[in-house]
Amino acid sequence: MLRHGVMLYQSFSGDAGVGVAKFTAVDSKLTNMSAGPMFYITNTTATASLKNTQLVQAGGSKTLVQVTSDRWGTTDKNGGDFTLDAEDQLLEGDVLANRISQVTLNLGEGAVLKGAVNPDNQAEKMTVNLAQGAKWELTGDAYVTSLTDEDINFSNIESHGHNIYYDKSESSLGGKTIKLPGGGKLMAH
């Protein structure tokens, strides 16, 4: 039974060395037949680079990324640290992480994210970086540690009435509340 699409992890079973797990797809098509996330990361540091790749959630999952602890590694030290780089890429689904996991989303030129980011406010750290030509369409509220956007007016974020909450102590936004297109707000929490 399939539980995930692409799984990046460290099992410590002796079948792989310790390091950074890397995944790259360019001009490709990835089909996730499971009901789980397209990308599942646990007990490792991992990076994925996507460019012009069609992501198909054939199993009906609404989760793009899940970074969490699982059965591998030492309890409370077996989360993940995941960086997703996207360019000319459509990304659909939520981005989730647990309390001992971190995610960095680098949305480059032509990248479009349609999803909620850390909607349950559980991630240890969640960073979103948008290029001028990137776009983020929220499908739910988002909780981020840090948000940077080359579009200083944040006009490339379509809120659909949802809010983005950022960590005042980790952000250069200095506690400001900013109205987003679509009725939502960017505000400190």
Rank of each mutant, 00 (worst) to 15 (best):
G182H: 03
N163A: 05
S172K: 08
L130Q: 09
T148D: 12
G19P: 10
E170N: 14
G79N: 09
Y166D: 07
S69P: 04
H162M: 07
G59C: 06
P37S: 13
K125Q: 15
N153G: 03
G17H: 00
H4Y: 14
L50T: 10
T74M: 07
R3A: 14
V6A: 05
V26E: 14
Q132D: 13
G115F: 03
G19N: 09
A116I: 02
F12T: 04
H189T: 13
D149R: 06
S155T: 15
D151N: 15
S169F: 01
T24P: 04
S172A: 12
A58R: 12
S28A: 15
G79S: 12
K168Y: 09
G174Q: 08
A25R: 14
A21Y: 04
G19D: 11
A35F: 03
W72E: 14
L90I: 09
T127E: 08
T104L: 08
T45K: 13
S155N: 14
A142I: 06
F154S: 01
G133H: 12
G115S: 02
G93S: 04
K168M: 12
R99N: 15
N153E: 10
T53A: 11
A86Y: 05
G140R: 11
S61W: 03
N98M: 03
L105S: 13
E109H: 04
A21M: 10
G17M: 00
T31H: 01
V26P: 00
I41S: 03
M1I: 10
N153F: 01
Q122N: 11
G36Q: 13
I100Y: 04
I41T: 04
T42V: 12
A116N: 05
G59P: 04
A188Y: 02
